[in-house]
């Protein structure tokens, strides 16, 4: 049973990572769909806290997959989730790096590079709405998300600054009974 989960998770994360364009943020809706809707590894609320913790921790945002693995199957899950997300895509990166000079001269490469970013923008905004529906329950949450979103759009500071401001607002609101 447990081993089955690990195999399923490895296949799910590896395939999702390999077909993802635009990095991890673009993968989040698919990961949510698999973890919550398809396999039922966690519910919406658990996904939301897992996502929040992975954002607060330092490091690359594939930590979301690592933490899902940890939640589902402890250390084995952590290892399987992390490795299955990292290894296949790193092998592709290795091959691409070695072919870089040839790639740069190829017209199809330049065209592909120009044409995919708009799709990525759509995926990332979809990430926000999908995680938003899982994570946000009240008006205060909506206000916090919009305020942080606006702040990130308009400034170039470390994203932890608005995140910790949001946490402070949350704790104060909680103490005052608004949350």
């Amino acid at each position: 049973m447990n081993q089955n989960i690990l195999v399923t998770m490895a296949l799910t994360f590896a395939t999702t990572a390999v077909v993802s364009v635009g990095g991890i943020a673009a993968m989040i809706p698919e990961i949510h769909r698999q973890a919550v809707d398809v396999y039922g590894w966690m519910n919406d609320a658990e996904f939301a806290t897992t996502f929040a913790i992975s954002q607060i921790a330092p490091g690359p945002n594939i930590l979301l997959m690592s933490l899902i693995g940890w939640r589902v199957a402890g250390f084995a899950g952590l290892a399987v989730a992390t490795l299955s997300t990292v290894i296949p895509t790193s092998l592709i990166a290795l091959a691409a790096h070695r072919a870089e000079q040839r790639l740069k001269r190829a017209n199809w490469y330049a065209v592909t590079r120009r044409s995919l970013p708009p799709i990525v923008v759509g995926l990332i905004i979809a990430s926000a709405t999908v995680t938003g529906r899982a994570a946000i329950t009240g008006y205060l949450g909506v206000a916090i998300a919009l305020a942080v979103g606006l702040y990130v759009t308009l400034t170039r500071t470390n994203p932890l600054v608005p995140l910790f401001a949001a946490i402070a607002v949350g704790v104060i609101a909680g103490r005052l009974g608004y949350l």
Binding site: Q55, G132, I144, P162
Partner: peptide, 26 residues
């Protein structure tokens, strides 16, 4: 209770981070 409200707010804030990244790219 404080950890509960902090988590609710952090989750909403994390959504905001993704939203902001998307808007900036857009």
């Amino acid at each position: 209770p404080d950890v509960k409200s902090a988590t609710i707010a952090a989750a909403a804030g994390a959504v905001g981070l993704t939203l902001g990244t998307g808007f900036k790219l857009a």
